[in-house]
Amino acid sequence: MNQPRLATIEDMPRVLELINELAIFEKEPDAVEVSLKDLQEDGFGEQPKFTCFVVEVDGKVEGLALVYPRYSTWKGKVLHLEDLIVSEASRGKGLGTLLLDTVVEYGKSMDVKRIGWEVLDWNEPAIEFYEKKGARVMRDWDVVQLDQKGIDNYLNQK
Rank of each mutant, 00 (worst) to 15 (best):
I19R: 11
N2R: 06
D38Y: 12
N153D: 15
G116W: 13
P13W: 01
V144P: 03
L22Y: 01
E118P: 04
E62G: 08
E26S: 10
V57R: 13
A31W: 09
I19F: 14
D30P: 01
G107Q: 01
M12A: 05
V78F: 09
R70N: 13
V103C: 14
N153P: 02
G116P: 03
M110I: 03
D83V: 07
A23E: 02
H80F: 15
A89D: 14
K158D: 10
L79A: 07
A126D: 00
P69G: 02
E128W: 06
D101V: 08
K49P: 02
E62H: 08
E88M: 00
E26P: 08
G92L: 06
S87P: 02
E62T: 11
S72A: 07
V104W: 01
R14A: 10
V137P: 11
L39Y: 12
G76D: 05
K49T: 02
Q148T: 13
G94D: 06
E46Y: 08
G107K: 01
K132V: 03
G116H: 14
W122L: 05
I115L: 14
M1P: 05
W141D: 02
Q47Y: 10
T102A: 11
A7I: 03
A65C: 03
G107D: 00
P48E: 02
L146G: 12
V34G: 12
T97R: 14
G76N: 08
L81I: 12
V104H: 04
E33H: 00
P29W: 03
E26Q: 11
L6H: 15
S72W: 07
L64D: 04
V137L: 11
V54H: 05
N123T: 06
K133Y: 00
P48F: 05
M110G: 06
N153W: 11
V119I: 00
D121N: 15
E33P: 00
D83L: 07
S72F: 08
V57A: 14
